[in-house]
């Protein structure tokens, strides 16, 4: 009997602290496991419960998988107290992926806020795996303070060097500190003058992930500068229990986020009341 409620036994290989409240967990599932950028998994803390998370590692990395998790509730707090070699469970992958094949030869703008960079990192690694397929990539990222930046080394240093001249980076913090030499301002300010980077805005792609308010204001600004609703992609965080279209928790208008999402275009969502709450 194929039981969709049964998790796959998975080992925590490594735990990487990102910020005071965010850690990346490197996972090794017992069975072969593949996913595409944008899809999510249900992560089981044995005996405690499950929560939905989107892997942040490259889908091309088949041996292990990473998830970046902020401590916000019971499941995530328990997870933060776990150690390397501990066992967790996973089910999935569920939901849809970023339709990267449709984005060939286009300019792609990625906008992340806080821990929302996690699924976007998986997307970024997917896009850079075939970098020449895309006309241009711009990565915008905003965190509260320099201390809150995730994948700090990659985003401030490694990627910038590796992709110099090919990808532009626009990183900002809401509040700086004495060591911070970068930009200060809300993530929406990274979109100021975006037309200097992106030549054909109405034909280009924008991908947004972050806290609800950040997604809201970023989307409004994107519309303002000329992005079209059907080319703005949003990753929606919803309450999820089953992940497989049955339990009803993730309903969003006529959609189920676990089945029709978690990636939606703004065009799909724009008429649904209270999507940002």
């Amino acid at each position: 009997m194929n039981n969709p409620y049964e998790p796959i036994k998975t080992q925590i290989l490594k735990i990487i602290p990102e910020t005071a409240q965010i850690k990346t967990f490197v996972l090794k599932p017992e069975n072969h496991f593949e996913f595409n950028a944008g899809q999510f998994i249900q992560l089981t803390i044995p005996g405690v419960g499950e929560g939905p998370f989107t892997p942040s590692s490259s889908p091309y990395e088949k041996e292990k998988m990473e998830v970046t998790i902020m401590q916000v509730g019971k499941i995530t707090s328990t997870l933060h107290n776990m150690k390397e070699n501990d066992l967790v469970g996973i089910r999935g992958p569920y939901g849809n992926r970023y339709p990267v094949d449709e984005w060939r030869n286009r300019e792609i703008l990625i906008v992340g806020g806080g821990v929302g960079l996690a699924p976007l990192r998986s997307l970024f690694l997917t896009l850079t795996y075939n970098l020449k397929e895309y006309k241009k990539i711009v990565l915008c990222y905003g965190a509260k303070t320099p201390e809150d930046i995730v994948y700090k080394e990659s985003i401030l240093n490694k990627w910038q060097k590796e992709f110099a001249g090919k990808i532009s980076f626009r990183v900002t913090v809401d509040v700086g500190d004495e060591k911070w030499k970068g930009k200060v301002g809300l993530v929406t300010t990274t979109l100021d003058g975006i037309d200097e980077e992106v030549s054909n805005i109405s034909e280009s792609i924008a991908v947004v992930c972050g806290p609800p308010v950040m997604m809201k204001f970023t989307t409004l600004k994107l519309l303002d500068v000329g992005y079209t609703p059907e080319k703005i992609y949003l990753s929606m965080e919803k309450n999820m229990s089953c992940g497989i279209g049955k339990c009803g928790h993730c309903q969003l208008g006529k959609f189920l986020a676990c089945r029709d999402g978690p990636v939606f275009t703004y065009e799909q969502l724009k008429d649904i009341p209270a999507i940002w709450d």
């Binding site: 049964e6 916000v72 995530t76 309903q251 209270a274």
Partner: peptide, 26 residues
């Protein structure tokens, strides 16, 4: 370890609330 299926009710306050606290139908 055991996992149970339990009836839930969309009329209840926390039905759609996410871990971070946001609730689409408060």
């Amino acid at each position: 370890y055991e996992r149970h299926y339990l009836w839930d009710a969309c009329l209840l306050t926390g039905f759609a609330r996410v871990a971070g606290g946001a609730n689409p139908r408060p």
